[in-house]
Simulated assay, not measured.
Amino acid sequence: MPNPFKRVLKVSRKPDKEEYLEFSKIVAIGIAIIGAVGFVIVLIGELIGL
């Protein structure tokens, strides 16, 4: 049975600069959304006295 990890490494490639920047923007937007949701939850909790 062939090792699946070797196959993945064989067909994978290093992302170019444009692809890397696009991925970084998506990750940054996701982190910002999660942070904003957490902030709103804490703010609502403070306002209602939890």
Rank of each mutant, 00 (worst) to 15 (best):
M1S: 15
M1D: 14
M1V: 12
M1P: 02
P2K: 11
P2D: 10
P2Q: 10
P2S: 14
P2Y: 08
P4E: 00
P4N: 14
P4W: 00
P4A: 07
P4Q: 03
F5E: 03
F5L: 10
F5P: 00
F5Q: 05
F5I: 12
K6E: 04
R7Q: 00
V8S: 13
L9A: 11
K10I: 10
V11H: 03
S12N: 08
S12V: 09
S12R: 14
P15E: 01
P15V: 02
D16Q: 05
D16L: 05
D16N: 13
K17T: 01
E19F: 00
Y20S: 14
L21S: 08
L21E: 14
L21I: 04
E22W: 00
E22A: 13
E22H: 05
F23Y: 15
K25R: 15
K25F: 01
I26E: 14
I26P: 02
I26W: 07
I26Y: 13
V27K: 15
V27S: 09
V27M: 15
V27D: 08
A28N: 11
A28C: 09
A28I: 06
A28Y: 07
I29R: 13
I29A: 13
I31E: 08
A32K: 08
A32V: 09
A32N: 05
I33N: 02
I33D: 01
I34R: 05
G35V: 00
A36D: 01
A36T: 02
V37T: 12
G38K: 06
F39H: 11
V40W: 10
V40R: 08
I41L: 13
I41M: 15
I41Q: 01
I41T: 12
I41Y: 07
V42A: 06
V42C: 09
I44S: 02
G45C: 12
G45W: 15
G45Q: 11
G45V: 03
E46W: 05
E46R: 14
E46K: 04
E46S: 11
G49E: 09
L50V: 04
